[in-house]
Amino acid sequence: MFLAFRPWKKEGKLNYMDAVRPKESLKSSPSYARGKSRYIFANRFRALFAYLVLLFFVAFAVGPVLYLISPALRDSISLFDYPPKIIPDEPTLDNFRFLFDSTRYLSWALNTIIYAAGTTIISLFTNVLAGYAFARLQFPGRNLLFFLVLSTLMVPVAAVLAPTYLMVREIGELPIIGRPFFGLDTYLGLILPCTVSPLGVFMMRQFISTLPVGLYEAARLDGASEWRILFKIVLPLIKPALVVLGIFVFMITWANFLWPLVAASGDDYRVLTVGIASLKGQFVTHWGVLAAASLMTLIPVTIVFLFFQKWFVQASMAGALKQ
């Protein structure tokens, strides 16, 4: 039936007809021909309907971003003109120029990269180590500890926002480990609290425990230390999982708005999300600049996405399906 609903696949339809297999004499009767053409027509109609619906939602998904091009190339005042000029008469790059000259867009972008890359690297590092310990090392209290970590999986980040903010502020006041290394408005203060999601530990544990135990045991008998086993045997074998987790963490982190908003509101450590949000003024907003900034931000991500779409899709599913 699924086959039959694909009008472009001739064999599929024939197969379906084969299954029904009317007698030869019946096939030549006019009522059969009518039935067959009605059947084909119904299928074509269904397919047409399906594709119209799908294309509508494609437009819904992509349209808003594509439309940004228009306001980005116009000056903000002309937005309010009536009748609207969706295709500008004189396209201008003023909005982009403003972005680079009058805001700290580049510094925001750099901070975002530091923030997201730092979070990704530190998360991968800590998650792989902990995942390995939970998957392969024997130690008393292993199950209890793992249960404790897992039980925090469902803690909404926003619910611990305030106390986490306090923790960062208090640790920042401590000698030696505090400022300038750690605290509010420092890179580490921004990054470290974002690396604690138990999801990564859980994923890594799952991946590592699906590797054959024999490999691990063989390596131990070959004299390899746990560290050597991790780096020489386990890591090369879970590379795909690492990439998936890495993209997942990166995507979540660079999109984060709430935490950077409270933890790094200072000018020097502002990230893109907070920066762009600050462009939307209380009273006056340069809408053209906003459109330009949104577009500027999305273009590099889109390019990376188009090259690695399979990994992206897997990464976002990983968070959901790997549990």
Binding site: G214, L215, E217, A218, L221, A224, I233, P236
Partner: peptide, 19 residues
């Protein structure tokens, strides 16, 4: 520790490092 017992084991499914 098994790492320091200096003995070799051949496993039923060989446990060769696939990579």
């Amino acid at each position: 520790d098994p790492t320091r017992r200096n003995l070799a084991m051949v496993f039923q499914n060989y446990a060769l490092y696939p990579h």
